[in-house]
Nucleic acid binder design. Structure first.
Length: 103
DNA sequence: AAGGTGACTAACA
DNA sequence: ATGTTAGCCACCT
């Protein structure tokens, strides 16, 4: 497993309940501020039964830009977020600045 | 080893 | 404000 990937996973893992981060933010913490796309790529590769709170990662506009995989959809992510106490709008958006996790 | 790809972003028209 | 275009760069084949 590459170092970047591992750092992304580590950071996402420590995101507290009720908080969210953007892909770009995760990439920055992982060491490559411009590798935001890789963050999404990595999350996509995770197993559906992983314990990593990947659903707390959204794009910088506070929008759930997931591409409905076989196992996951935008709706399911919205449900998971609401389960964390995060208010998700019907259009799959939320106030990221209000919930953003800062390390 | 080399090239294609995209759960992103920011800049433009 | 909404739609397009063009960089990005680690991962996968």
């Amino acid at each position: 497993m590459s170092n970047f990937k591992q750092r992304v996973i580590d950071f996402v893992t420590i995101i507290p309940k009720g908080k969210v981060v953007s892909y770009g933010q995760v990439a920055a913490v992982a060491g490559s501020p411009r590798a935001s796309r890789q963050v999404g790529r990595i999350l996509m590769g995770l197993d559906p039964n992983t314990k990593i709170p990947w659903w707390r990662v959204i794009n910088n506009q506070g929008i759930i830009s997931i591409k409905g995989n076989w196992t996951v959809t935008k709706e399911s992510q919205a449900i998971l977020l609401r389960g964390d106490g995060v208010k998700v709008n019907e259009n799959l958006t939320l106030d990221i600045e209000h919930y953003r996790f800062r390390s």
